[in-house]
Design a protein around this nucleic acid. Structure first.
Lengths: 208, 208
DNA sequence: TTGTCAAGAACGAACGTTCGTTTTATCCTT
DNA sequence: AAGGATAAAACGAACGTTCGTTCTTGACAA
């Protein structure tokens, strides 16, 4: 038997995924042809189809990686105790999303945000991926509800609002800011931190 | 001459756009075939190609309509004087986006948010559409900077943060919340309003 | 150590299908 | 009756995928 090493197989798989991710981040899943992927990965059709049964399976592999990376980033940021204030927390999350420490070796400008919105549109038409996305969101949401409850318990935030509503809003901020990175180009994360700080300063006169 | 009335022509064009928008909201631009559009619009290829030179032109027409509708919604919400607080302002914007008073006769659950994220991905690969999106964003941004400056001038918000940063953050909230509507289904806008209120309440102890 | 060989890995031309679009024929309004 | 609006069929191109072949690898006999 002349099988090649497992590291070799893994490296080939990575090579394909990375090439595909570059194509997908640039052009989206359905405007990217398999020939584009083959060219970018510098492999033949036969080679690629040895590792992935179909284009759809390749897409699903990328989507899963992206969802996992984002989920981990959001979850681990919420794990600190005591949780930092929203402006600091959000700054940290977005910094990680933009620098992609997430283990994804994709390169290119803001490629994770670009892939992220491609993934969003794909979940609209693939029920399996939609379920995966919702499941990842549920975990992030739960973690961030814990953060909000800590704010409220510490008296830092009014507690007459369901923590789930606040968590959803905070996640929306992160999602929207990430989308902006993809759409309008990279911007310092401090912009978001400052904006949140200013919004957080608007509550003082409410009691009068 | 056997020309048909202008109303007929306009109605046919609308019929095509509406059918295409339904397809695009459901499956995205590139996973929707022209045959899908023809079927949904209940017209033949010859008829559709009389009104739109190509699929790309059809896509651009839809993208432009969506961008215009969103821009108008965001801009008009910022036109009130004095501007309502962020939670109320945002609630109003999202209400309009979700009910689609915007003149777009597309139907279906949260179809404008769904189309919106499809449009986002399309701007990643089409420089013309990207420019249109950036231009629309610039107008919205300018309007919202005005709102933030009003907050600061009224002493409602700390004024040591650039208004542009706050405006960007507020737009991110709206974008993210709209994306959530597309991804996870409709949720009462009051969730966002509550979440913002809670975030706005976090500033009071800062001086101590 | 070296040469041989089978099996796995990779190649790339070719397949059938589906795509967006064009052409041709018919209908219908004026 | 005339001619634009629509339908229906057909087109070439490009798609995702397959498959016969070639190249490469590592075990093992000598």
């Amino acid at each position: 038997m002349a099988r090649v090493s497992q590291e070799h197989l893994d490296a080939r798989r990575r090579q394909i995924l990375n090439g595909a991710a570059r194509c997908f981040a640039r052009n989206g899943f359905h405007a990217t042809s398999m020939q584009d992927v083959l060219r970018e990965a510098d492999l033949s059709a036969g080679a690629v189809y040895r590792y992935f049964r179909s284009k759809e399976q390749l897409i699903e592999a990328i989507v899963t990686e992206v969802l996992d990376a984002i989920r981990d980033t959001f979850e681990s940021a919420a794990a600190q105790t005591p949780p930092p204030a929203p402006d600091v927390l959000m700054e940290r999350v977005m910094e990680e999303v933009l620098t992609e420490r997430s283990g994804l070796p994709y390169d290119g400008e803001a490629s994770l945000p670009r892939l992220m919105i491609q993934v969003w549109t794909e979940t609209l038409r693939n029920e399996t991926l939609s379920a995966a996305m919702r499941q990842g969101y549920a975990r992030v949401h739960a973690a961030w509800v814990g953060v909000v409850e800590a704010y409220q318990a510490a008296g830092l935030m009014r507690d007459d609002v369901p923590a789930a509503h606040v968590a959803r809003t905070m996640i929306a901020v992160a999602q929207g800011f990430a989308a902006q990175q993809a759409l309008f180009g990279t911007v310092p994360v401090s912009v978001l931190r400052d904006g949140l700080r200013a919004l957080m300063s608007m509550g003082q006169q409410k009691a009068s």
